[in-house]
Computed example of a mutant assay.
Amino acid sequence: MSKFFALIPAAGSGARMGNELPKQYLSLNNRPMIYHAIYTLCQSQAIAGVFVVLAPSDNEWFKYDWSEFSEKLVMLSCGGLTRADSVLNGLTTAKQKDLVETDDWILVHDAARPCLTSIQLNKLINELATDDVGGLLAVPVADTLKRSNIDNRVTHTESRENLWQAQTPQMFRFDLLTQALRSATSINVTDDASAVEALGFQPKLVTGDAYNFKVTYPQDLALAELILQKRNNS
């Protein structure tokens, strides 16, 4: 019977945050930001294990106590230059260590999405567990979209019909995801679904919610803190 595993690529530097500390370790509610994603994934009874893929030179990880997650959490020091490289390296290493099987489901989640809830996670798993391809959390685009020129002048307004904003986790079988990422080395893929799409598959969109946003800029961190504090107090 197939199992469900989560994988968090966390080998990046998060340069857009304007901080020397890698983004995943920035303080959020008195914890490193990556803690919150790990907590939600490890708390899920459906998830058999959580792989965190770090840069080989990452020493920051060892400054924190991760023992509360010891039953599920596995750290892999095999991160690559890009997100796709880190995911593929993590999958390859996990298979070499006999931690996963080829038909297991892999849920790839961003370390910088700390506001994922168990409700969203369970919805994704339940809707995709019997799907032939897999899919991802996403939200329909609500805002008007403008196309600009190099001078930041509007050239035209884009139709938002049938447009979605991709989120994570993105959930695919180990074998399909590995094949997709290996095949995508010559193209620019910004998420796992893009690599699967490049093979000709159509991932399913599972409606998430806007709170599951990616922390990219300093103001995003402040918003994430407010959301988590409100949840903790409710």
Results as ranks from 00 to 15, higher is better:
Ala6Ser: 15
Ala6Lys: 08
Leu7Ile: 09
Glu20Ile: 05
Leu21Arg: 02
Lys23Arg: 04
Tyr25Asp: 11
Ser27Phe: 04
Ser27Trp: 04
Leu28Glu: 12
Leu28Ser: 09
Asn30His: 15
Pro32Tyr: 10
Ile34Asp: 02
Ile34Glu: 00
Ile38Thr: 03
Ile38His: 07
Cys42Tyr: 04
Gln43Asn: 10
Ser44Phe: 11
Ile47Met: 15
Gly49Val: 09
Gly49Cys: 11
Val52Gly: 00
Ala55Cys: 06
Glu60Asp: 03
Met75Tyr: 14
Ser77Asn: 01
Gly80Asn: 11
Arg83Ser: 06
Arg83Val: 11
Leu88Tyr: 00
Leu88Cys: 04
Leu91Thr: 10
Thr93Cys: 08
Thr93Trp: 11
Lys97Glu: 06
Lys97Pro: 04
Asp98Ile: 08
Leu99Thr: 00
Val100Ser: 13
Ile106Cys: 08
Val108Leu: 02
His109Arg: 08
Asp110Ser: 02
Ala111Asp: 07
Ala112His: 04
Ala112Glu: 01
Arg113Ile: 06
Pro114Thr: 01
Leu116His: 00
Ile119Cys: 09
Leu121Gly: 11
Leu124Pro: 03
Leu124Glu: 05
Leu128Arg: 02
Asp131His: 11
Asp132Glu: 14
Asp132Asn: 12
Val133Phe: 11
Leu136Ile: 05
Val139Gln: 08
Pro140Asp: 08
Val141Asn: 04
Arg147Val: 08
Arg147Tyr: 00
Asn152Leu: 03
Arg153Ala: 09
Thr157Gln: 15
Glu158Trp: 04
Gln165Asn: 11
Pro169Ile: 01
Gln170Glu: 12
Met171Cys: 10
Arg173Gly: 09
Arg173Tyr: 14
Asp175Asn: 13
Leu176Glu: 14
Leu177Ile: 05
Thr178Phe: 07
Arg182Leu: 12
Thr185Leu: 06
Ser186Gln: 14
Ser186Asp: 13
Ile187Cys: 13
Asn188Ile: 02
Ser194Asp: 06
Ala198Trp: 10
Ala198Asn: 12
Ala198Ile: 15
Gly200Tyr: 02
Leu205Gly: 06
Asp209Glu: 07
Asp209Lys: 11
Ala210Lys: 15
Tyr211Lys: 14
Phe213His: 02
Thr216Cys: 12
Thr216Ile: 03
Thr216His: 01
Tyr217Phe: 06
Leu223Pro: 09
Ala224His: 14
Ile227Asn: 08
Leu228Ser: 05
Gln229Ala: 13
Lys230Leu: 13
Lys230Phe: 14
Arg231Lys: 07
Asn232Tyr: 06
